[in-house]
Simulated scan of single mutants.
Amino acid sequence: MPQTTKNSRIIHATIEKVFEAFSNAKALEAWLAPNDMVGKVHNFNFRAGGGYTMSLFYPESEVNVKGKTAGKEDKFSSRYIEIIPNKKIVEAVNFETNEADFAGEMIMEVTFALHQDGTEVTFHFKNIPRGIKPEDNEAGTISTLEKLAAFVE
């Protein structure tokens, strides 16, 4: 059975401002990498059918961590399936890896909804590769949502 997770957070900013943080490569570098990871966008084309390639780097201080791609790096490509401004972004995500447990296309759907305190942002992951524990994906998503809030609020 495919693995899925779903996490939401109220961001104290307008939908437009939150959506803009998804449509800019430099913004993604600032907030998308969870926890103490650092992000680097290699290319970026924000349109349906376009996409981006990004590396997430684990901190050197994490000695027991091995990246999905190499060393302390998780590199992935993302293809935009659907973009509805200020409402929804759907991406197909593929890790660059030689490990079968991390291979396969994962779907990330992000929705934006008006909330009395700002914007409710929901990340829904489908077809999470079997090598990624759903609880680890959820923890990473919660961290990412915290960083997004700090970035736009």
Results as ranks from 00 to 15, higher is better:
Ala150Gly: 09
Lys26Arg: 12
Asp136Phe: 07
Thr97Met: 13
Asp136Pro: 00
Asp74Gln: 11
Arg79Leu: 14
Phe22Gln: 01
Thr141Phe: 06
Glu60Pro: 00
Ile128Thr: 09
Met108Gln: 15
Gly131Trp: 00
Asp136Leu: 10
Lys75Arg: 15
Gln3Thr: 01
Glu135Lys: 01
Phe125Glu: 15
Glu60Lys: 06
Glu120Gly: 09
Thr4Gly: 01
Gly39Glu: 00
Asn45Val: 07
Glu96Met: 06
Ser77Thr: 13
Glu16Trp: 06
Lys26Trp: 02
Ala149Thr: 05
Leu28His: 03
Gln3Cys: 08
Ala92Ile: 00
Asn35Trp: 14
Ser78Leu: 03
Ala103Glu: 12
Lys133Gly: 11
Val41Lys: 04
Phe102Ile: 05
Thr141His: 04
Phe22Tyr: 08
Asn64Glu: 12
Tyr52Met: 15
Ile132His: 02
Asp36Asn: 14
Ala113Lys: 11
Lys40Gln: 05
Ile15Ser: 08
Asp36Ile: 05
Glu29Gln: 13
Val18His: 06
Phe102Cys: 07
Glu120Val: 01
Asn43Met: 08
Ser8Trp: 05
Ala103Gln: 15
Asn127Ser: 13
Thr69Trp: 09
Gln116Ala: 10
Ala103His: 05
Pro34Thr: 15
Thr14Phe: 09
Lys17Asn: 14
Arg79Thr: 14
Asp74Lys: 07
Met108Trp: 09
Glu62Thr: 05
Asn35Thr: 06
Gly49Met: 03
Phe76Lys: 02
Val121Gln: 11
Lys126Leu: 07
Lys126Arg: 12
Ser77Gly: 14
Val18Gly: 02
Leu28Phe: 00
Asp36His: 09
Met1Glu: 13
Gly71Pro: 02
Ile132Cys: 07
Lys147Gln: 11
Pro85Val: 01
Tyr58His: 14
Ile10Pro: 06
Glu153Pro: 04
Arg47Ala: 09
Asn35Arg: 10
Asn86Gly: 13
Ala139Phe: 02
Ala139Glu: 11
Ala113Ser: 12
Phe112Trp: 04
Val152Gly: 03
Lys147Tyr: 12
Ser55Gly: 10
Ile10Arg: 10
Glu73Met: 11
Lys126Gly: 05
Met37Cys: 01
Ile15Met: 13
Thr141Trp: 09
Glu120Met: 07
Ser23Met: 07
Thr53Leu: 11
Glu16Leu: 03
Thr144Met: 10
Ala27Lys: 04
Ile81Thr: 15
Glu153Leu: 04
Ile132Arg: 04
